[in-house]
Design a protein around this nucleic acid. Structure first.
Length: 589
RNA sequence: GCCGCUGUGGCUCAGAGGUGGAGCAAUUCACUCGUAAUGAAUAGGUCGUGAGUUCGAUUCUCACCAGCGGCUCCA
């Protein structure tokens, strides 16, 4: 029961930590009202309602008070009250949020409280036996959070913390966080010259610098070639369209806040109002609609490396992970009902192939994202259609031996999704790849096919990405590889370092030869010492450094330093070229 | 959008109500160099933007913009 690797014990430990936090806050700031305080992945938090904002100094004071509570070794006792008593107790303490929680509990719930010293909290538990067990903890951050997670409610103050049974574990955790910070793509990606942002341009609109742009180009070529091999047809569709198009798709009604609109949306019924595309589906559907389609024509697989524009809320942007303009490997497969399963599997296979090649396959998790029947206004179509499509998707997933979580309310507005989730270096989860089943938009757009009996039918549409969003993928790759991208996607694969000026011409010639063979090679022609050139190449995370002086030129070799393997000594040039070409072709990571 | 924090030369950071500094990077010159930083000199900032307070603001106040951590939202 005291194994910290055990999730149940760890959560109990953190939950008690949250109570100690709340206890300290109540001692120091009695006017504060308590909301909720659960254990989370990396620690715990507690939400408070207090007129004055907590400051960094308050946080320190709270932490000191928590230390006292731990030292006091207060026993923690559980007790039960009936509903009226429970309300009465919370009323006396002025805990209005707790009363709301009590009122929402189902009739048959046993209402429990936990007491430590003079502190009592409504809580289902369980808890540790004594506050003295929480030996090591730290309050990590201060944040705002809506009561009950709804933006319609009041914004509370959330204090995050983490805790461990001993000091060393906390130290290790903090050191590991420090390491993570060094990998943060938003810092590393800027330092290494992958991208930048400029105030004049605006939020969520990064500039891809030559290195970043080169990586995106490599990825894009790779994805497009692979999709072509898998029977996709390429489209190039416009970046914007009249509101008319989005009215059919439902974006105008269900996604307008997310769109950049050119003109006054209120006048869209009278005059032409354009909007930048937030998704590619309605555009590719127009390609389908150019002809009458027979069941024999299906499946039709469209793909496009598609630039999308989404007007994200201003507080949402984050490096390359959340931006307002991004490029996605978008595709739509129009298929017959009996083809759905195979096409779905094919889409997943392509996605998984991409993950494998990028070395990310062990870092992802799967989520079956369903609609929320309680929030019908966020989704189009009837409960019937949703139930049917979700059941169909469930059947496909069950045949696939895939472990997945379920996300209620996470569906797209037109259909359920299988999302491939990935965590960034700080443990925050985002969707990398998505595969969606849609049986609604075809009907809205009048996309039909003629079946064997000559009747018109609506097809299924699979909306899918193969590598997801390129910018986001780049961000995750930078973090995964701490900036040292695998050779096949590295913007600069090797750098030739001439020992002195007299070796420069030969170095340039070699670079030219290697470039003509498709390798991305640069020469460091500065009049600097070799030690400095090496140091800088090392800091730029170069995979290969090729040192060239008198000896090497004489022997037709280069002295190779590999980031992965260190000094490799002199290697004949032909042999080195073979090696680089092989590693590139095999997509080593 | 909401809560909180931040904004000084390319980067990291000092500084103070009276018109700003360091290290690294950059440029130039010298050195022609053998596996993680050669030396010297020079240049570079309307202190995020705009208002206000003040004799005077980059330093105080407000608004806006941008960045960060969350919430909500989402690829």
């Amino acid at each position: 029961m005291s194994d910290f690797n055990d999730v149940t014990y760890r959560n109990t430990f953190r939950h008690t930590s949250a109570h100690i936090l709340a206890h300290a806050v109540k001692r120091l700031y009695p006017e504060t009202r308590l909301a909720i305080g659960p254990a989370i992945d990396q620690g715990f938090y507690y939400d408070f309602d207090r007129e004055t904002a907590f400051t960094a100094e308050d946080l320190q004071a709270i932490e000191d008070e928590m230390k006292k509570i731990v030292k006091e070794r207060l026993p923690i006792e559980r007790f039960e009250l009936n509903r009226a008593q429970a309300r009465q107790l919370m009323l006396e303490k002025g805990e209005t949020y707790k009363i709301k929680l009590i009122d929402e509990l189902p009739d048959d719930t046993v209402i429990t409280f936990f007491r430590q010293g003079d502190f009592v909290d409504l809580c289902s538990g369980p808890h540790l036996d004594n506050t003295g067990e929480v030996r090591s903890f730290k309050l990590t951050q201060l944040a705002g959070a809506y009561w009950r997670g709804s933006e319609k409610n009041k914004m509370l103050q959330r204090i995050y913390g983490t805790s461990f049974p001993d000091k060393q574990m906390l130290k290790d955790y903090l050191a590991q966080q420090e390491e993570a910070r060094k990998r943060d793509h938003n810092k590393l990606g800027r330092e290494l010259g992958f991208f930048t942002t400029v105030d004049y341009i605006g939020q969520g609109l990064p500039i891809m610098l030559p290195k970043g742009a080169r990586v995106l180009q490599i990825l894009q070529r790779f994805v497009e070639d692979e999709e072509e091999r898998r029977g996709y047809l390429l489209t190039k569709t416009p970046f914007m369209a009249k509101s008319d198009l989005y009215k059919i798709s439902g974006h105008w009604q269900n996604y307008r806040d997310g769109m950049f609109i050119i003109g006054d949306p209120e006048k869209a019924d009278e005059v032409e109002v354009l909007a930048l595309r937030p998704m590619t589906c309605p555009f590719q559907f127009q390609a389908y609609l150019t002809k009458t389609r027979s069941y024999r024509d299906l499946p039709i697989r469209y793909a496009e490396t598609s630039t999308l524009f989404r007007n994200e809320a201003s507080g949402e942007m984050h490096g390359l992970i959340r931006v307002r303009q991004f490029t996605i490997s978008e595709g739509h497969i129009v298929c017959l009902p009996e083809q759905l399963e195979e096409e779905f599997k094919g889409s997943l296979d392509l996605a998984q192939y991409m993950l494998r090649v990028l070395g990310l396959e062990d870092d992802v998790s799967y989520r079956f994202s369903k609609w929320d029947p309680a929030e019908t206004d966020k989704f189009i179509g009837s409960a019937d259609v949703w139930d049917r499509v979700q059941e169909t998707m469930q059947g496909i997933l069950d045949n696939m031996d895939l472990e997945y979580a379920v996300g209620i309310g996470e569906a797209a507005f037109y259909g359920p999704k299988l999302d491939i989730q990935i965590k960034n270096v700080f443990g925050k989860e985002d969707t990398l790849i998505t595969i969606q089943i849609d049986f609604q938009l075809a009907e809205r757009f009048g996309m039909e096919y003629v079946d064997r009996e000559g009747r018109k039918q609506y097809p299924y549409v699979i909306h899918r990405t193969s590598i997801g969003c390129y910018e986001r993928t780049l961000a995750l790759l930078i973090e995964k590889y701490a900036g040292a991208l695998p050779l096949w996607i590295a913007p600069e694969q090797a750098r030739i370092l001439p020992i002195s000026e007299k070796h420069q011409a030969t170095a340039m010639a070699l670079a030219g030869r290697m470039r003509s063979l498709g390798l991305r090679v640069e020469v460091d022609n500065r009049d600097e010492k070799i030690g400095k050139k090496i140091r800088e190449a090392q800091m730029e995370k170069l995979q290969y450094m090729l040192i060239m002086g008198d000896k090497e030129i004489e022997d037709n070799t280069v002295s190779v330093r590999s980031r992965r393997e260190g000094e490799l000594g002199a290697i004949p040039i032909n042999q080195l070229i073979d090696r680089l070409q092989r590693e590139t072709a095999e997509k080593f990571h």
